[in-house]
């Protein structure tokens, strides 16, 4: 079991004939992902690794039922591609590209909420349900990182995820699902919106949160724990604890959050809510050992 995605999920790839799109489609199929169709305007009738390509998302879904779409499109086309997927009725979308313009991202977030869709990204490696399926690009062949298990992982970062997940595996655990919500200022799904799915998943015993400075997402997780929306153990690691005020943290950005946004504040909020907070990557493993051993 896993969240959002498993090997039966019928996946569409928008931008399937591009260099990255075709390369990773093959890897996704090799890993076990049920990729059923692709879209690239002008390429209908072709196929990529045996997957049929259509001109538009509507034409694809008219022929083949689709549950989820993965966007391999450049950032300037991400908004359009998302709107196309939502209009075709797709309720799960993963957007990988880094560099979506802010005003586009705001409108995308609004559209996702209005459509009742779970849109993950952008600026992410995607999502992977270990040993079953992935939407995105993960070096699943790295055994010391991508090992199936019972820890749910959600993250704002790519390379830091490899670092932390390696520590989870080193401590003898593995992951159920890894959800890369991405590093953009406007993530289209927020940490606290993923938590209920991990809460319900019988194969997830605990969650590791990989966060960083800026925004209010870690504080929202603390609130979800306080409000008993999430009741399983949660271990957090946050990057940027000693960072001087970042260049991206403008006045108005900090003010919306009224005193929130620094890693120190986030750590306090999480600890007060009952989460365990690792100061260093290595401690993620030892903290998991401490809570999960005591449960057995």
């Amino acid at each position: 079991m896993s969240i959002i995605l498993d090997q039966s999920t019928r996946v569409l790839v928008q931008g399937i004939t591009g260099k990255e799109g075709s390369f990773w489609t093959k890897h996704m199929i090799d890993y076990g992902t049920n990729v059923v169709a692709g879209v690239t305007p002008g390429r209908e009738g072709q196929n990529v690794a045996g997957v049929p390509v259509f001109h538009t998302v509507k034409r694809a879904v008219r022929n083949i039922p689709v549950e989820a779409s993965l966007l391999f499109v450049p950032p300037r086309f991400a908004k359009e591609a998302l709107f196309e997927a939502l209009e075709a009725g797709i309720k799960k979308v993963v957007i990988l590209c880094d560099g979506i313009p802010l005003h586009d991202a705001i409108q995308m977030r609004k559209a996702a909420i209005s459509a009742g869709a779970m849109v993950i990204g952008g600026n992410t490696s995607g999502i992977i349900s270990m040993g079953q399926a992935m939407m995105g690009f993960f070096p699943y062949w790295l055994e010391r990182v991508y090992k199936p298990g019972r820890i749910g992982i959600m993250t704002r970062s790519g390379s830091l995820t490899n670092e932390i997940t390696a520590e989870v595996v080193r401590a003898g655990f593995g992951a159920s699902s890894l959800i890369g919500i991405g590093g953009d200022p406007v993530p289209l799904t927020r940490f606290a919106e993923v938590l209920p799915l991990f809460e319900e998943d019988p194969n997830t015993d605990a969650v590791v949160l990989i966060g960083e400075l800026g925004g209010t997402m870690e504080e929202e997780v603390a609130e979800a724990i306080e409000n008993k929306i999430f009741t399983k153990p949660l271990v957090a690691f946050l990057g940027g604890r000693t960072a001087p005020k970042g260049k991206k943290m403008g006045h108005a950005g900090a003010i919306i959050t009224a005193g929130k946004g620094t890693v120190k504040d986030k750590m306090i909020a999480l600890k007060n809510a009952g989460a365990l907070v690792a100061e260093r990557p290595r401690q993620v493993g030892t903290l998991l050992e401490s809570i999960l051993a005591s449960k057995i």
Binding site: T155, R156, S157, G158, S159, L160, T161, E163, G183, I210, E212, L213, G239, G240, R241, T242, A243, E279, R280, P281
Partner: peptide, 17 residues
């Protein structure tokens, strides 16, 4: 000289620690 914003921030923290 690091790759990825999250990892770079983490290395920055570790050097300071």
């Amino acid at each position: 000289m690091c790759a990825g914003a999250g990892l770079t921030n983490t290395v920055f923290d570790l050097v300071n620690d």
